[in-house]
Amino acid sequence: MMAKLPGLGPRSARRAVLHMIRKRALVLTPLSEVMATVAATARECLNCGNVGTADICDICNDPKRENGQMCIVEDVADLWAMERSGVFKGRYHVLGGTLSALDSIGPDELRIPRLMSRIGPEAVQEVILALNATIDGQTTAHYIADQLEGQVSVTSLAQGVPIGGELDYLDDGTITAALNARRPV
């Protein structure tokens, strides 16, 4: 069962299981208790799609985060990445994927209708599209921007050279995007 988890193969799963058995009191028992709690309580936030332990997650419940900004992300892993940076102080909306013509994923398969219904009641003034810089991600971003046209300000994350990146190692697409988004110094 462990070998089926992402990032683990049969060998690494065996090592992990042996480690847990050897450290039963220190690792296995607490881990099993935590896993049981997570299995019983973890659920998707009915408002934004984040994972939490209640119907409405901590971020949606926090009045300090009601600053008029809403960040749109593809999945929960992206939300966690944004939270790790600690820069964004508004609320989120997790789409649960991207539009894909080839895979027949349309707006109704994602949480786009729910997003539209949040804009007015939550007094959102700016929607920040933090979607992947892929064809599907940007197609989704353009679709959402079209839907929100005239209602709120819509911005998206910049694309270009990563911090610590060397130009020599960048693909031509990233260099093109960075050059198109250049700014005065």
Partner: peptide
């Protein structure tokens, strides 16, 4: 071995992006 990317040219322009999706979608 990547030769050239066309995504960067298409992503910034909605019509180009929609066109690229239509071409690859119809070919597939």
């Amino acid at each position: 071995e990547p030769q050239r990317s066309r995504a960067a040219h298409a992503m910034g322009d909605r019509l180009s992006l929609a066109g690229l999706n239509a071409v690859v979608g119809l070919l597939a």
